[in-house]
């Protein structure tokens, strides 16, 4: 046994290595199933996927792409947070600073912006795909409802993010959007008041929308996504052709 082989064996037999990798390298069907089942990230996914489900033209991977865009938005959003202050006097200049004097700032902001637009678009297409395949029918009716909640959360994430550049288009879009809340039945005036944090769009509104955009909605969406993915498996995987 050469020196390298001995080092390799030493690592593989160590307590730390064996506590990290409980199974041997997955090279047959049984150990592959174990690898998926025993991993906290993978276990949400089904161990086995039906052949029709991996056909690209059946799903166009729209749900997966929506989730991928959510991850992209989370990462680029965290990057942008380092340079953005949700203050009425500073927010707009911060956006300009990100674009002009931060390395890769313009790229990061544009990725965030395009991914946001695309996520709304892909979530919509995903809903269309599910509808045309009749994949909302029992036993998947509960997951359809979870999906509707996720659609609402996606739109709210997009809406709250729209105010943050604090330019004219943002200001007036949010003025119109919150005026719509003022026409809701029963709780119109209080809900508009609490959403704006005042009588009109101002510093309080910017801070409120910022907190909703970066903490509340992503967290709630992540929880619903976990339920959404887990339900797919519990309802028997991706729906087959009718």
């Amino acid at each position: 046994m050469s020196f390298l082989e001995r080092v390799d064996q030493g690592i593989r037999r160590s307590v730390v290595f064996r506590s990290l990798f409980r199974q041997p390298y997955p090279n047959d069907e049984r150990s592959r199933a174990y690898a998926v089942m025993n991993n906290v990230f993978l276990h949400i996914h089904p161990v086995r996927v039906r052949q029709h489900a991996v056909k690209f033209a059946y799903t166009f991977c729209l749900g997966g792409l929506s989730f991928f865009l959510f991850l992209v938005l989370t990462v680029t959003g965290v990057y942008l947070m380092f340079f953005y202050v949700p203050s009425a006097t500073q927010a707009y200049t911060d956006i300009l600073q990100i674009q002009s004097s931060v390395a890769f700032g313009l790229l990061t902001r544009n990725i965030h912006r395009w991914a946001a637009h695309l996520m709304v678009f892909f979530v919509f297409l995903h809903m269309m795909r599910v509808f045309y395949h009749g994949a909302y029918k029992p036993p998947r009716e509960f997951n359809w409802v979870v999906g509707v909640v996720l659609l609402f959360l996606t739109i709210m994430l997009s809406f709250t993010g729209y105010l943050l550049p604090w330019d004219q288009i943002a200001y007036w879009a949010i003025t119109i959007g919150t005026n719509m809340a003022g026409y809701a039945p029963l709780f119109n005036t209080p809900s508009k008041f609490i959403l704006l944090g005042g009588l009109e769009v101002g510093q309080n509104t910017l801070l409120r929308f910022y907190v909703l955009h970066i903490v509340v909605f992503p967290l709630v969406a992540a929880i619903f996504m976990a339920v959404h993915f887990w339900r797919i498996r519990k309802d028997g995987g991706i729906s087959g052709p009718l």
């Binding site: 704006l196 005042g198 009109e200 409120r208």
Partner: peptide, 14 residues
């Protein structure tokens, strides 16, 4: 939560 988030307009517009 609602009363925590309820805006206080004292000293400002409103």
């Amino acid at each position: 939560t609602i009363s925590f988030l309820w805006p206080n307009l004292a000293g400002g517009f409103g």
